[in-house]
Computed example of a mutant assay.
Amino acid sequence: MSPVLSLPLSGFRIAVTSNRRSEELIEALERRGAEVTHAPLLKLAPLDDEAVLVHQTKKLIELRPEFVVISTAYGLRRWFDSAEAAGLGHELCQCMKTAKLYVRGAKAHGAVRALGFHAAGVAKDGTTAGLLSLMANEVSGRSVAVQLHADSDHGLGLALRELGASRVLKVEPYRWLDTSSEQHLSTLVAGICAAHFDAITFTSAPSVHALFAAARSRNRAPALIRSLNERIAVATVGPVTAAPLQAAGVHAPLVPARHRMGAMILQLVEHLGELGTLSTPTVFGPCELRGRTLSLNGEHCELSPAQTEILRRLMEAGGSVVTRDELVAALPAVSSNHALDMTLSRLRRTLPHPELITTVIKRGYRINL
């Protein structure tokens, strides 16, 4: 096998949906051989206009809440950067020191400690539910400030009021720009529905919400969910990110035991290595399919999504005959026998050896073992 194809993700096409830290993720995937498409689903609004955040910070300093909820490490750092620039850093620190800090997740806890603060409680699972369970008997009649992550966190304020909090102050260190109308999202949605990718990565729940919003606005949500369930590996950085996928009907997103980007990458490598790679001996030598890259006795070629699905079905059958009806049913983009014939004809012309696929008259097709 060539040095390129010996890399663990060679042959696989992966969509990266994150904006922040995307360069780090893309570089890690490409270093392992993947072909990466970057399609950020959300973009952070610039900090040029700090008026809203400064106003919220002044309100917090005035209120002196008894509890402060920290949702994210990046949000906390961004909040303090803004406060320092506005000359409010010292006063904000004093408020944090006198309040009970409750933190959602290990990364946010690390940021709290880095700033010299002590957390009264940490939701180890990184979820809002875990955070609320820690605070259930604490906040009745008390004032609480909440550092929000994104729009999807707004239910946290209502939940705290239901626990009896007398006042909830929301602090939003960052806002997301609306990118739903941008062309790259149309391309991403279409690519997912057509299984142009072998895997897609998510590093935040808001990105998941943005994808489904983009799919719904284009009337592609059912097709997108079907493709994510049947044809594309879905990698997430943790359970908070996976939750909206599961709620939308994506059955088995990958969730690493350690909620870190590095762990997500390693889990994806293992998953694609086990389930995304097929190998079989043939009369023409060893045949390996990695994503949409076929290696046949050392010769390589790139296949279309439909061609890949046909070859995958034939290889999985292990030399047994796969009927025409079975192939048509397995290919959403192939709706007739004529379309199947055209796809098979193009596939054979693409293969290093067209005779790799044998026609069994009146029955179907099989791999030539």
Rank of each mutant, 00 (worst) to 15 (best):
T72Y: 09
Q307K: 02
S335I: 09
I232C: 00
K97L: 08
R292A: 12
L169Q: 10
R32N: 05
L331V: 14
A235N: 10
T57K: 04
L115D: 13
S166Y: 09
L92N: 01
A73V: 04
L185A: 04
L224H: 06
C301A: 13
S335L: 12
L351Y: 03
A73N: 13
L53C: 04
V4R: 13
E23K: 11
F197M: 07
V234M: 03
L158V: 07
L351E: 01
A111M: 06
L9K: 02
R348T: 01
A106G: 02
L275D: 05
P8F: 12
S22I: 14
R78K: 12
E35K: 02
A86P: 03
L53N: 03
L7K: 15
A210E: 09
V16Q: 02
R175I: 06
R366F: 00
I232E: 01
G262Y: 06
E172K: 13
I61H: 14
S279F: 08
V255P: 00
R32E: 06
S6E: 13
A252R: 11
A252V: 05
G130E: 09
H259N: 10
E24H: 13
A317M: 12
E162M: 15
P65D: 04
H251A: 15
A39E: 13
A252I: 04
K362W: 09
L41E: 07
Y74M: 08
S133N: 15
N137Q: 09
H184T: 11
A165I: 02
H154W: 01
D153S: 14
I265T: 06
R324I: 09
L44D: 08
V255K: 01
G116I: 12
E182I: 00
F12I: 05
V321D: 01
L344H: 03
A330P: 10
K100D: 15
S152H: 14
A73T: 08
E288F: 05
R220Y: 10
P239A: 12
A252T: 10
L131Y: 07
S2K: 14
R167V: 00
E62G: 02
V255H: 01
H149R: 11
A247M: 10
